[in-house]
Amino acid sequence: MANNIRIAAPKTVRKGEVIELKTLIQHAMESGYRVDKRGEPIPRKILQKFECFYDDTLIFEAEFHRGVAANPFLTFYTRAENSGILKFRYTEETGEIFEDSVEITVK
């Protein structure tokens, strides 16, 4: 399954500005409560963790449980201190990691 990550972040910002970051990942977040057409339970498979790194510094972290909707969507904020790379990392309970990053320029 291709896990498409979408990130919305401003490209250029002023120093010290608090910026909004939005991210969405395509993932079923299978809760383990559902059954398929034959009545067999669909095994649980969820993303457990989301981390956002600003130049390798962890600035925001989220822990997902089964009550998080499919295709998890998240909006959060950060203070832009310097030009750099924002890395978005999702960890599935299977251990698989999905990552994407964006670059921001501080003027």
Binding site: V18, V68, P72
Partner: peptide
């Protein structure tokens, strides 16, 4: 959630670098 089979929906850890303690998401 006070009615879901699993009450804990999500946990967010913030830092001073967050700048603003505001989050939006979607839950079941």
């Amino acid at each position: 959630s006070d009615r879901n089979p699993l009450p804990l929906l999500a946990v967010y850890k913030l830092t001073p670098r967050s700048g603003l303690a505001k989050i939006s998401t979607r839950v079941r």
